[in-house]
């Protein structure tokens, strides 16, 4: 894999991961406040307890992915 292709794969992976983490961050937030709605919507996966635990730890990957997503383009252009 050449350098350009590698950067493209990394950027795409970061972007998709950021999207997934953002959705999970939002869903777990709603899962805390509206467990009766989000629980069935996620087939019981995001019940209140797991929503709380997920929401309280997802900030770290979210910030890291967002930073990487924003900086990668500039770094690659250097």
């Amino acid at each position: 894999m050449d350098e350009k292709a590698f950067y493209k794969v990394v950027r795409k992976a970061i972007a998709w991961l950021l999207l997934a983490v953002t959705i999970l961050f939002l869903l777990s937030g709603f899962g805390i406040v509206y467990p009766d709605l989000v629980g069935p919507f996620t087939l019981g996966l995001l019940y209140k307890g797991i929503s709380i635990r997920l929401h309280d730890v997802l900030w770290a990957p979210f910030i890291a992915l967002l930073t990487a997503h924003l900086l990668l383009r500039s770094v690659i252009k250097l």
Binding site: V57, A60, P61, A64, L65, A68, L71, V75
Partner: peptide
């Protein structure tokens, strides 16, 4: 940047 992402996931 990738290492930072990995560390964040490891923490989570």
């Amino acid at each position: 940047l990738l290492l930072m992402v990995l560390l964040a996931f490891a923490y989570a």
